[in-house]
């Protein structure tokens, strides 16, 4: 297991855990903070895939602009865990079960696909790098 795979699994665990914490935390402000952590983990995946430009744009636009807008609206409305609307337990369980069924169907549909044997270029390749911005590729060919 080399350093790339260790980083991949580390970022994946962070992304999935913080996404789960985002949908389970009662306080909307905590949800926003967990979602920001998810976005940082996804940006780490972009850097691992050598898409530096998208990683930086993801941090600036999503974590920097959109999430600040969410935090601003939540603070404007003074929402907290006491004002969180309550809901039937059974409806929550039905939502979780139907989401799990969707995941099961998608995984089962892709399980025997030929696509899964393909490799993705990790930590190599020059497309998406910041140093290529503004380069005229038609002149190269």
């Amino acid at each position: 297991m080399n350093i790339i795979q260790i980083l991949f699994w580390f970022l994946s665990v962070i992304a999935l855990f913080s996404a789960l914490m985002m949908i389970t935390s009662k306080n909307p402000v905590h949800s926003v903070l967990w979602l920001i952590l998810t976005f940082f983990a996804i940006s780490g995946h972009y850097i691992l895939l050598n898409a530096q430009f998208l990683a930086i744009v993801n941090i600036i636009v999503y974590a920097g602009a959109i999430m600040v807008l969410f935090l601003f609206v939540i603070m404007l409305m003074n929402l907290n865990s006491e004002t969180e609307p309550q809901k039937n337990r059974w409806l929550k369980m039905a939502g979780a079960v139907s989401g799990g069924c969707l995941l099961l169907v998608l995984v089962a549909a892709l399980k025997d696909s030929e696509l899964l044997k393909q490799q993705a270029q990790v930590n190599e390749g020059y497309i998406g790098l910041i140093k290529n911005l503004g380069k005229n590729y038609s002149a190269l060919m």
Partner: peptide, 30 residues
């Protein structure tokens, strides 16, 4: 890195998003 890790990670994140839309009532969380 095989592409299937990325496919299943994205599927898991997408389904977590769907579960959140179905279970939460707060419009901002949705």
């Amino acid at each position: 890195m095989l592409i299937n890790y990325y496919i299943f990670l994205s599927l898991a994140l997408f389904c977590i998003g769907i579960v959140g839309v179905l279970t939460r009532r707060n419009a901002i969380i949705i």
